[in-house]
Design a protein around this nucleic acid. Structure first.
Length: 270
DNA sequence: AAATTCTCCTGAAGGC
DNA sequence: TGCCTTCAGGAGAATT
């Protein structure tokens, strides 16, 4: 499931091949994603040059002079580059055809999105209320601690809230809380300032390392060039329910928070 | 305002 | 082997 590291990995794979490339055509086989793909997408894009690819939260923003193509990978989406497109499979919903290369969007569960934005992208409803990027200086312990004072939800739910900080999904929230030694079910407003510092450091660390590893591939995720991510081998708690904690050998436990499976060490996380 | 629940969807896993 | 049920999960929308 693509979280920030997987989306960033995708962006880095696509940018060298697609920056300054020109859209020649778009093939849409299945319009029904999270929202319908715009009917006139092919006409809008045809002939435009892709100027840059930006990532904001888990959104990819493909900028052109006339507008921005927004792509979200949802739960199971991935984008892949091809010199020569193979015959489409069941879940290959969209092909972006450039002069010398093709980009295919695949998404079995169809929770992703492809939108065309003409106005100021930063003012778009999907983007304007987002919290800070976790890997920037704007995401500090002071900010997280002060914000936490006003919230009573479980800390894991809190750091997965895009209004608080973006890009931290179920996998990396679980990992970061383990690294910080903080129980995922602790109410946000009971976080101490010292713990906020540990948590911010842990979030940054786990995201950076995951990007270095090319993301986490559980099933569906592959980078833009088709390679899987290797961070799965470095996961300390996610997917390890019942297995021994790497620090204390206690059997890891699982609970549900905000309708999300949450694995943690009952000994190391308090 | 904040918190909770519902919803979209498919493939995998479990039960009988 | 096969059919049915359950579950996972990003995040906006609807509801409390």
């Amino acid at each position: 499931m693509p979280e920030l590291p997987e989306v960033e990995t995708t962006r880095r794979a696509l940018a060298p091949a697609l920056t300054h490339a020109r859209f020649k055509d778009v093939t849409v086989r299945h319009t029904r994603l999270r929202w319908p793909i715009p009917q006139r997408l092919a006409q809008e894009l045809k002939g435009l040059t892709l100027e840059s690819i930006e990532r904001r939260a888990k959104y990819l923003l493909l900028h052109t002079q006339a507008g921005t193509l927004l792509i979200h990978l949802g739960m199971s989406g991935h984008l892949r580059l091809y010199q020569e497109l193979p015959p489409p499979g069941k879940h290959d919903h969209v092909d972006f055809i450039f002069d010398r290369i093709c980009l295919r969007y695949t998404d079995p569960r169809r929770f992703g999105a492809i939108l065309w934005i003409v106005d100021d992208v930063s003012q778009h409803p999907l983007l304007q209320r987002l919290g800070p990027e976790p890997l920037t200086k704007a995401f500090t312990a002071k900010y997280l601690w002060q914000t936490a004072q006003r919230h009573h939800v479980a800390l894991k739910t809190f750091i997965m809230n895009n209004h608080i900080v973006v890009g931290v999904g179920n996998i990396y929230a679980s990992e970061a809380l383990f690294l910080a030694g903080i129980h995922p079910n602790r109410p946000a407003n009971r976080l101490t300032e010292a713990e906020a510092q540990r948590l911010v450091d842990s979030i940054k660390q786990v995201l950076r390392k995951a990007i270095q590893a090319g993301g986490t591939t559980l099933k569906d995720f592959y980078s833009g060039t088709g390679t899987p991510g290797y961070f799965r081998h470095e996961l300390l708690v996610y997917g390890r329910e019942g297995e021994p904690c790497v620090q204390c050998q206690t059997a890891l436990q699982k609970m549900v928070l905000g309708q999300r499976g949450t694995v943690y060490c009952p000994t190391c996380q308090r």
